[in-house]
């Protein structure tokens, strides 16, 4: 069937939801908080790779991803740039990735080496931040304004969500009760709300990491993997549904779903904001 499909296209202006599906990175434009599903396209084809984690640098408009098949951590400019490998050595199974757009660093989890690492955005200054008490670290995110990182470990024996300073110090467990497989994790800097999606309890829950109060947003969801937010909605990838599911944080209801044409697992998901939130932290000066 000869259907030359101009399906690969540069990221148009505006905000987008980006997600990975083993050999590609897809985008769905956002109009306000609505998915413009009929304008969804493939941003980047990486046919030989298994792309898991994804993060977006709002400053240089670059997308970063982890690939467990090479394994490698790479980046590309979605206006039509070629992929650049940043980290290729001493990786096991790199899964989650997060950008500190202020300090210009990236953080990632490695579920085979059981550690959390950091490097500059060009891959230099690489350092292991955490290498104890990790079994299956997956999701990771940054709070650049306050200089924190958060991560989740779906260790079947004792799953937990933890936080630490961006240099790995002051590590502490935030959540460990009533957790099962916390695959997805996201943070809304405006409301200081940390939310997670659990494929074992089938719930989406949130808490304010400083105050500790925990609230349930959704229950009975199927199999979440990645999670992101635009402030109002939460977006999670679901392995069972093969879809991006949209949940309104305030009405606590599912409001939309996007199912790509290709029916395989979806992995990481992130919000590519049109502009960066303002802020500063100690890593930006040192």
């Amino acid at each position: 069937r000869p259907t030359p499909d101009p399906n690969i296209s540069p990221l148009p202006p505006g905000s987008h939801i980006l997600f990975t599906q083993s050999g590609k990175i897809e985008y769905v434009p956002l109009e306000g908080h609505d998915l413009k599903k009929n304008e969804a396209k493939t941003a980047l084809h990486l046919p030989e790779k298994v792309v898991i984690g994804i993060a977006y640098d709002c400053l240089e408009k670059m997308v970063y991803w982890t690939d467990i098949s090479t394994p490698a951590i790479s980046k590309a400019n979605l206006q039509g740039g070629e992929p650049v490998h940043l980290i290729k050595s001493d990786l096991g199974s790199p899964e989650g990735i997060a950008i500190d757009h202020v300090g210009r660093n990236m953080f990632w989890t490695d579920s085979m080496k059981d550690r959390i690492e950091v490097s500059s955005l060009d891959g230099s200054n690489r350092r292991v931040l955490v290498n104890t008490d990790l079994v299956n670290p997956r999701a990771i995110l940054t709070d650049p304004t306050n200089g924190y990182i958060y991560w989740a470990d779906w260790n079947r024996d004792s799953p937990k969500i933890e936080m630490a300073y961006m240099d790995g110090t002051n590590r502490r467990v935030l959540v460990k009760d009533d957790l099962n497989l916390p695959n997805g994790l996201t943070y809304d800097p405006r409301t200081s709300l940390l939310c997670w999606a659990d494929a074992g309890t089938h719930k989406v829950e949130c808490m304010n990491p400083q105050q500790g109060s925990r609230t349930q947003l959704m229950e009975g969801i199927q199999y979440p993997f990645g999670l992101t937010t635009d402030g109002k909605n939460l977006y999670y990838t679901d392995w069972m549904r093969g879809a991006v599911v949209v949940v309104d944080r305030y009405s606590r209801r599912e409001v939309d779903e996007f199912q790509p044409q290709k029916r395989t697992r979806l992995y990481g998901i992130t919000t590519a904001h049109a502009s960066c939130p303002s802020g500063q932290n100690y890593c930006s000066t040192n």
């Binding site: 069937r1 083993s22 493939t42 046919p47 395989t264």
Partner: peptide, 26 residues
């Protein structure tokens, strides 16, 4: 059969886009 394809703009490389279930790659 059943898969579609696309030309990568920069490299002019042809890549299959909707591979049969369970398969992937160029």
């Amino acid at each position: 059969e059943g898969a579609t394809c696309a030309v990568v703009p920069k490299t002019k490389e042809v890549v299959c886009t909707n591979c049969p279930t369970g398969t992937t790659g160029k």
